[in-house]
Each structure stands twice: as structure tokens, then as C-alpha cells.
Amino acid sequence: MSAPLGFALTGLALAGASHPTVARWITEALGEPARRPVSVERLLDLTRAHLALAGIGLALVAVLGIGLGILVTRRFAEPWRPAIDGLAAAAQAVPPVVVVALALPVLGFGGPPTLLALVAYGIMPVLRGTAGAITGVPPEVREAGRAIGLTRLQILARIELPLAAPAIVETLRTALVLAIATAAVGALAGASTLGTPIVAGLQNQNTVAMLQGTAATAALAFLADAALLAAVAGWRVIRP
């Protein structure tokens, strides 16, 4: 069984487990009192909000991360590489929860601090991954492009990016998983996402709601990851 299919099936199973009826069974099987489950409509609303937040964040991270990743591999930026790598390592030392917390007094409750955390934590791995993937393109291939008269921009578009694409997609997968996880953390700052029933459930000892949030968040992560893998596989079939 391939990984995308496995992830998709796991995601579907978890999505099923987040249904109020199923979650109630599981809670009762665990011996907990099943109180006030989250309705399907509310779950769908939260899913939409979660996807919107994670989607905007991922788009920003992808554009900025890949763009800057391409920039730092240009010749003029070479002396800056160690400094950028150092910065990337430092940025990773500030976990998303901490960014959300620090941004809270400045940006207020809700989506904005979550979005900031998403971008702050996600951009550096994508930048580093893109730069690494482009640097990994064998110099002979680049030389060959030069020899047949391609300009620098053509070398980038026709040689470097296509060869680096698989590795860049891998870093985007990490960024996607990170975006969904950070959007869940955003519930702590009052963003309305699938993390909300988890946080509220933990505070009110409402195990059903907590389980539903847990299953739905994990389901979303698995399904999104599977969708990205499937999209890449489809792309390879169309343009081998």
C-alpha cells in the first residue's frame, strides 16, 4: 500500500471518528461520561476556518520561502549564506506556541498572531530546503545549460527548478503539516479552528469534544498531506 493511500485512509477513519455519534461511542468505551458533543455543522465550520488559516499561511510561506530560497542561491548572495543559515537555526529555536503568545499583546486575539507564527516558523525550513535543493543540482548540468546559450533566468527556470522540484515539494509537505498544526495551536490565542474543541474540552473536561477536535485535526492533517502527495503524483503522470 502506498503512503498517500495509507494517509488518505487514516485521515478518513479519523474523520469518521470525529462524528458526534462515533466520538460518543469511543468516549463511553473509555469509561468517560459523554457530554455535549460538537455538532457536525460546527465541526465543518471549524474545518473551513482551520483550512483558510492554514491555507493563507502556507501560501505566504511557500511564496516567501521559495522566492527567498531562489534569491540566496544567486551568486551575489553567496557571502550571506552562513548568516542566513544561522538565522534559520535561530528562528527554529522559537516554537510556534511562543510566537503566538508573544504576538498576542501586539496583534490581539484570533487569526493574526497565528498567521504570524505560521510564517515565522515555516519560512526558514522552506527557504533552507529550496536553497539546499538548488545547490544540490550538479554543476555539470548547469554548465551544459550555459554552454548551449541559456541565460541565467533560463537556467533557473528550465534546469535548476525542475531538478530541485522533488526536494522542494518535500519541504512544502513539512510546511503543510506545520501549517495545520500551528493553526490548531492558534486556538490558544482565540482563533476559531479545530484546536478550539480540544482546548475547550481540556479546560471543561468535556472528553467528547476533545476527542472530536483531536480526531478532526489529525484527519485534516492526514488528508491534506495525502492530497498534496496525490497532486504531485498526478503532475508527474501529466508531465513526466
Partner: peptide, 12 residues
Amino acid sequence: GLQVVPAVALLG
């Protein structure tokens, strides 16, 4: 697969 599960969800 575990890495895909968001930390908030795994803690719950």
C-alpha cells in the same frame, strides 16, 4: 505518520 498528527491533537 505520527509527525503528521498535530501536537495539540496528540496531547488531547
